[in-house]
Amino acid sequence: MDQRGNPQVYRFDDSDRTTRHESRIKHMNTLKKERYFAYRKFFFRMFVLIFILLTPIVLFYSLGYKFDLKSKKFLKTGAIDITSHPKDANVYLNGRKIENTTPCVIRLLMPGKYTLTLDKDLFYVYEMPIDVRSSAVTGIDVTLVPKMRNIEKLKSGMNVQKFFVIERLFGRKIILFTDHGIYVLGENFGDLKKIATLSMDVDDIRTVTGIREDKNKFVFWSDRKIWLVKLGWNQDPDDTVVKQIYDARKDVREVYFGLKEKYLIVLDGSKIIALDVENPSVIFPVMGLKDNQAKMFYDSGSETLIVRDRSVPEDTFSMFKVNFMDLVHEKSES
């Protein structure tokens, strides 16, 4: 090969009989004229050198070492790992702005106390003290609080007396009791829809303490009364009226749909009763309680009544369970 690496005419002189070793050298020299092999050696040495130089630098960096020009020593530093919700907040450390926005990691910090400030448009400034330790990462996860903006009035001319939140399986809705009727705010809290006309006194509306929903009807109650609203499909809200179905004997504290949602299980004073939703005059006693402070919970899925009541003779409060499931099942079979 010539100096450019191109093959050239090779002359092999018979009279130049060399030893095997010398001929090998000659052959290797021929190969070496190919500049690639020379470059290989150069690159090999170069990458070995890079490895030797780079490894300690990267290791020192990884362990957090930093050369301090003032003390002329290697000092162990720490880092802060900042995450914010929402992201892209400006970061200030001891008043000095850091280049990156959140989420970010600030490295090579001398151990000690710092003041971290996060700032983002439309959010309140978040400031906190932070402690940086050597060879450690201090993790910060911050939720920024938005400033009040974009307050939207949902509907003019409404006097909302009460509102309740009903939790559903796939979301929730808000029921509003207003002077003009009962409204519902949809799942995105954007649609305001009238569902029933309210023919109650305003004073009665203000005494409403609870609400329960079941499929196409819901009940609400005060300590004295229970009302029922039945919603029909495509029914005009103006034709949907509120019907009072129960007058309390003592005070109504809890109401649940139960017994295949055909009854209301009502805690009235120291009695638990079952009230037929379709025929409110039909009332059955369920359980008598010993204490006026007793509480109840009814699980309509398992038709189980859970009660906290005073038990005698211990004179302590205990939990009681009444399972209606079998009874309900038997009733349906018969």
Partner: peptide, 30 residues
């Protein structure tokens, strides 16, 4: 630490091998 050293070693090695690959390819083409 050992993993960092290994990663740097393999990075240097891969780039070195890439250099050889490029040169060998050039040799073939020429």
């Amino acid at each position: 630490i050992a993993l960092i050293v290994y990663l740097i070693y393999w990075s240097c090695r891969l780039f070195y091998m890439s250099t050889l690959l490029f040169m060998a390819h050039h040799r073939m083409l020429s």
